[in-house]
Structure formats: structure tokens, C-alpha cells
Design a protein around this nucleic acid. Structure first.
Lengths: 109, 109
DNA sequence: TCGAGTGTATGATCTGGATCGAACACTCGG
DNA sequence: CCGAGTGTTCGATCCAGATCATACACTCGA
């Protein structure tokens, strides 16, 4: 009867509206995270688990990068079994920082 | 007869067109430089010397920040007597990274 | 219930960048 | 020609953040 209880701690998200400009810029000013955001933008929502990205870092570092992206309001995560699925917060982030995400996704390196 | 020779080494500029995205983001992802850019945006071109900005750092650090801004294609400098005058490269930078400068100048911290 | 798969936390290391003080270079007015 | 004003360079220090290896936690299928 009770809804299935979450046994794993849900990741703490920050809404883009509460993200300082410097936090957003710092989050995007890293090659690994930029890659994550871009790959994420090329996939459907909730399609990509954390481990499915082609970045040259270990699991631990990857986990921290995702935490940074969450804290910057760029990524939302949801647990699905053992995996943690991701979604780029396009609309919300764009409302807070209009054009920034588009720019980052469009501009060549 | 000869044009007045420059006795001081002219600062080396980088045109925004040749600036990588990560360089631009990193340049803006610093509180001091953000402040410089914003104050510069509120002044007319060539109106502000390096020492005229209200930032809580010493001369040395300030000089490095301006070098970073030059390298990111954000600022152009010109020597005028003992002073070095600055100008925000609005149009050029905006052509390379459309909307970024506007965003940074408009968004609250 | 066990084990493989997935992600997080912890502790350590390392590096880039931000900072400062001091020394140096240049310009201009007196 | 000197001295005040301005900015850069150099060397040293300091610290946030990026990284790794390891250990841990949770989920699910066999």
C-alpha cells in the first residue's frame, strides 16, 4: 500500500533559479563537465546512466562532476534500480541564464 | 617625422575569434574578473585605467587578471602615457559567443 | 542469498590559479 | 634629471578543485 520506499538517499538538487552566476560559469568551465552536458543534450531525457558517458576519468571523479552539475542546476537525476539516470534541465536552466546553454552547446570548442 | 615609437611593450591581445570556449568561460568564472568586466561595461571605451577599478586585490593580481581578460578576448588595452586604458570588446566578443556577454552583464550575481 | 553491476564516500595526492611583496620598467611633470 | 604615478615581472605561498584507489552501499537477477 505504501509507495515503494527509497532505500537509497535521493540526490540533492539545486534549482537553477537559486544558482549564482559564478557557480553556473564554473560548472561549465571544465572540459569533462562540458562533455557531459553536451552528450546529455544529444540524448533523450532519462536515457543516460552516469556510467554511460565517454569521459576519461574514473568513477569517483565522474560522481563528483555530476554532483557539481546538480549543484549548478544543470542536471537532474533519478534512481532507476541500480542506475542513476540523468536529464539536462534545459528549460529551467535557460530561464535562469537565457542563452547560456544554447551557446555552450552550439559553440565549437 | 617618425611616428612616436612605443617604448613600452604593447600588450599581446587575442581576438575573440581565436578564443576557445573553455577559455572564455574560465575567464568569466572569477569574481574579480566578473567585476572588472561589469565595471568596464558601465564606462565608455578607453575611459578606465587598470588602477581605477574597485576590486579587493593588489596591483600584481590585478595585472594578471587583465592579462587573462586579454587572452580571453574580452578586453583591449592601449597605452596612454603612464596609464593603460581599457575597452570591453563587446561587438567582437559577442560575435564569437553570442549572448554570453549580455547574459553576464544582465544576470544578478 | 549471493554476486555482478552501479554509484557514492573517504582519504590522499597533485596541480593550476589566485594572491602578495618586492623589484623593476616606463612616462610625465616639475 | 629626478620623483611620483602606473603597471608588469618574479618568486613564493596558499588553496580550491580535479583526480585516483579503495572501501562501502544499494539494487536486482540468478
Amino acid at each position: 500500500m505504501t509507495a515503494p520506499r527509497a532505500h537509497r538517499a535521493a540526490p540533492d538538487h539545486t534549482h537553477p533559479d537559486h544558482v549564482p552566476l559564478l557557480t553556473a560559469l564554473s560548472a561549465l568551465a571544465d572540459p569533462v563537465r562540458l562533455r557531459l552536458v553536451r552528450e546529455l543534450a544529444g540524448s533523450a531525457d532519462w536515457d543516460r546512466a552516469c556510467g554511460s558517458f565517454d569521459v576519461p576519468v574514473g568513477k569517483a571523479a565522474l560522481s563528483h562532476h555530476f554532483a557539481t552539475l546538480r549543484a549548478a542546476g544543470l542536471v537532474e537525476q533519478r534512481d532507476a534500480g541500480p542506475k542513476r539516470l540523468n536529464r539536462l534541465r534545459r528549460a529551467e536552466f535557460d530561464a535562469r541564464f537565457p542563452g547560456l546553454l544554447d551557446l555552450v552547446l552550439r559553440a565549437e570548442p
